[in-house]
Computed example of a mutant assay.
Amino acid sequence: MPTKGPRVCGYCGLTHMTGEQCRFVAARDKARKASFDRKRPNARERGYTRQWEKESKAFLEDYPFCIRCGKPAQLVDHKTPHRGDQRLFWDRTNWQPLCHHCHNSAKQSEERRASRKVKL
């Protein structure tokens, strides 16, 4: 089966196999994420308290399957990001059951794309 050939990295100028990440890019990404995490409030400060755990567990009992793929849901996601708005945070019509895979892949990508459009 044919594979893609190596590519020239736009960051370091060296060639890397397709799918292989440049060590300089990996280090840059790690530093960027660490910087963001230092500035971000922790989960409790963002509203994910004991009360949230209780309410989300009850919600998952009512809606046990991921709305995207149909697998068992493991978490409750906010359809519209609440960004600290407590009214939107607790609005059950803004909640949806998701599995970890759907939440961490497709949903996060959609939110990143949407936030880029807002900044433009």
Rank of each mutant, 00 (worst) to 15 (best):
E45H: 03
M1T: 12
A106Y: 11
P2L: 08
R92S: 05
L75E: 10
T80C: 05
K57T: 15
R23N: 08
R7H: 14
R38M: 10
V8C: 09
M17H: 04
H78G: 06
R112W: 04
V25L: 09
T3S: 10
D85E: 06
C99M: 06
E55R: 13
V76K: 10
L75V: 00
C22W: 01
C66T: 01
P81I: 03
C12K: 03
G10Q: 10
R50F: 00
P72S: 12
C99P: 09
Y63A: 11
R68F: 06
D77F: 03
V76C: 08
A26T: 12
R83W: 07
R116A: 14
Y63E: 08
K30Y: 07
T18D: 11
K4D: 06
G5D: 11
C102F: 07
M17S: 13
H100D: 15
R87G: 10
H100L: 13
L14R: 10
K33R: 15
C69V: 12
K54E: 12
S105L: 11
V76Q: 00
C22Q: 01
A73V: 00
R92Y: 06
Q51G: 00
A27P: 01
R38K: 15
C22T: 02
R40V: 05
W95P: 07
E61D: 11
Q108S: 10
D62G: 08
C69G: 03
K4H: 11
M1D: 13
E55F: 01
N42V: 04
D85I: 05
R112C: 09
Q21F: 00
W52T: 06
T18P: 00
R116L: 12
E61H: 08
F65Q: 02
S56M: 00
Q96G: 09
T3C: 05
L88Q: 10
D85A: 02
V25R: 04
R68K: 13
K79G: 00
T93W: 04
Y63L: 07
H101A: 13
A27C: 05
E45G: 04
R46Y: 02
N104C: 14
L14C: 10
F59E: 05
N104Q: 15
K33F: 07
A26N: 07
G10F: 04
E111H: 04
